[in-house]
Amino acid sequence: MKFKTFAMFVGPSILLMLVFIAFPLVTVLVNSFQVTQPIFTTQTVETCTPGFVTQTCTTSVKTVPVLDEAGNTVTTTRWVGLSSYANVLGGDRLTRALSNWDIGAVLRIDFWKALRFTLTFTLITLPFVLALGLAVAVVVNNAARSIKGPVIFVSLLPFIITPVIGALSIRWLFYGDGIVTIWLEALFSTDLAVAANGWAVEFLMMFYRVWHVAPFAFVIFYAGLQTVNQDTLESAVIDGASRWERLRYVVIPHLMPLIVFITLIHLMDAYRAFEEVIGFSSQSHRITLQYLTYDFLQPDDAGNRQISSASASAMLTMIGVVILLAAPLRRTWRDHRGG
């Protein structure tokens, strides 16, 4: 295919990605180094109230935003270097906590809190997703042919459902006097307040993620199981391998590329976890890195959005993505050059 034809086919897509992905990345990078604020001036205001004999007048100094002719606030953009980053990372609080060797204080700073949660969340859910997905795939593969269709249908539901709604549906089972909480209370005869306990909320968020992603792993493993070489399995039987050994030494090595694939996708997706925080309203206990940026972008009570801090936290989040993708990308590049 000539370059010109190739460019005509790929052009619109590239243009969209440049305008809406690459360009925003540049603005985020630039914004993270500068702060845009309204200009304020101080005005001396004299207010008088009618008094009994004479007027009582007080003068006070007020800070008011400068307005242009159209009545809009005039803003100024200042280059602030790394100070937004320092802000997001905790600034003085961080240095103080570090000099005292106080990890707890570090983890109370929003960014480190989010980083800690995002990383544990990503790494702890991964093995559960793989194990549950594989177990379900093996079991469905083992089930009678007639029930496979409905079983796959039900299994897909947690994956297809809107993430916020999925998280909400589990939240309603546990929060307040949710039915499962009532069962647990009856079982252990204690009083549970799930929503008030940070660790319980953290567990629920992980539980939701495993519930949500395991069907994806299941479908992929299930497809992989269809292509397991039957001859190898039979020769393993003849060699006297038990079921467990066949799974361990024949099936799992066969599924290895799929395990790598699911791991990669899961790491990417769990690292940008966000809907859990909304669904479980866990802002006061646990936040994720993506939620941190989202929170900066939300207008505060005065309607201002902290664009600069949001950009800084977005750039810091990106560092994680780069680290995450470095290894698989290096391998792809080697394959490309080799093949």
Binding site: F3, V28, N31, S311, V321
Partner: peptide
């Protein structure tokens, strides 16, 4: 072509980007 390969690789990197990173870029604009 190698160009196509690079487009795909860059697309893969873009896929991993958290959406809030991008929205942080759009919002002021």
């Amino acid at each position: 072509s190698t160009l196509a390969f690079w487009i795909l690789i860059i697309a893969l990197i873009f896929r991993a980007l958290p959406h809030s990173v991008l929205v942080a870029g759009y919002l002021p604009v």
